[in-house]
């Protein structure tokens, strides 16, 4: 049960009772990269938001187990502290909150030893550089006025400092050009800590940048097929229709 994130027979509804996720099972081991694909509206983002604990959604049955611990109903921040990370498809802007100060506070919350502001800034700057993010980004307000690409990179920058055990990345690649994709995935592939990843994408090209261990196809709230990276080629050839 160690080094595993298990999604067990998970059902998710909206607050108003509309069922969206229909019994999903996934097992992600540390070091593995799982790719989740599916047409728009298949419930991928709902699944990821619900796993993190978004108040719009309700897990009606099933379990989320992180390293053997049932965290299904844990508060959002506790899930984060136990090592679950959600990379947002549309990162949220928070006016007046300095990016570096916010992230240092978040990092300090997660670890017992506190990092000094100066040391933290230096680490942050060097990581930002690797992502080809401008230095000034860390002095700006959280996601405010960031370009689409900067927002996506800033999510991964946060991930690299928070060092979670498992990351769910909701379309980290959407809106990025080829160069940005290269930087982003080169950075992800070279993270200096063990990580299991569930990566949601619409982009088959992603396989040029990342080595996928498993590919899953989600349609209408269910995972209808799982396989290795060859599954992506199948989708590329004939679309999702044949899986429906």
């Amino acid at each position: 049960m160690k080094n595993q994130l298990i999604i067990q027979d998970l059902f998710v509804s909206t607050k108003t009772g509309k069922q969206i996720v229909d019994g999903v099972n996934l097992k992600i081991k540390t070091g593995e990269i799982h790719i989740l694909m599916g047409p728009n509206g298949s419930g991928k983002s709902t699944l990821t938001d619900a796993l993190m604990g978004h108040p719009e959604y309700k897990i009606t049955s099933g379990k989320l187990i992180l390293n053997g611990q049932d965290i299904t109903n844990f508060p959002i921040d506790k899930k984060a502290k136990l090592g679950l990370f959600l990379g947002f498809q549309y990162p949220i802007e928070v006016a007046g909150v300095n990016f570096a100060q916010f992230l240092r506070m978040a990092v300090n919350e997660q670890s017992s030893k506190r990092v000094s502001p100066v040391a933290f800034r230096n680490i942050l700057k060097s990581q930002a550089k690797k992502l080809s993010l401008k230095d000034e980004i860390i002095e700006r307000c959280l996601n405010e006025g960031f370009s689409g690409g900067e927002k996506k990179k800033a999510e991964i920058l946060q991930l690299s400092l928070l060092k979670p055990k498992f990351a769910i990345l909701d379309e980290p690649d959407s809106g990025l050009d080829a160069d940005a994709l290269k930087y982003l995935f080169n950075f992800i592939n070279n993270l200096d800590f063990p990580l299991g990843m569930l990566l949601i994408t619409h982009n088959q090209r992603i396989l040029h940048f990342v080595k996928a261990d498993f590919v899953h196809i989600m349609i209408k709230g269910e995972i209808v097929k799982s396989g290795d990276f060859n599954l992506v080629e199948e989708i590329e050839r004939s679309g999702y229709a044949e899986f429906a």
Binding site: H54, F88, I92, V94, F102, A106
Partner: peptide
């Protein structure tokens, strides 16, 4: 709600998240 969710997903508790949003608002 989205802002709170976002900040909490980074490990801040609800009070810390709201404080941060308020302090940002009056910045």
């Amino acid at each position: 709600e989205q802002q709170i969710f976002y900040l909490m997903s980074r490990g801040l508790n609800e009070t810390q998240a709201s404080s941060m949003i308020v302090n940002g608002f009056i910045e």
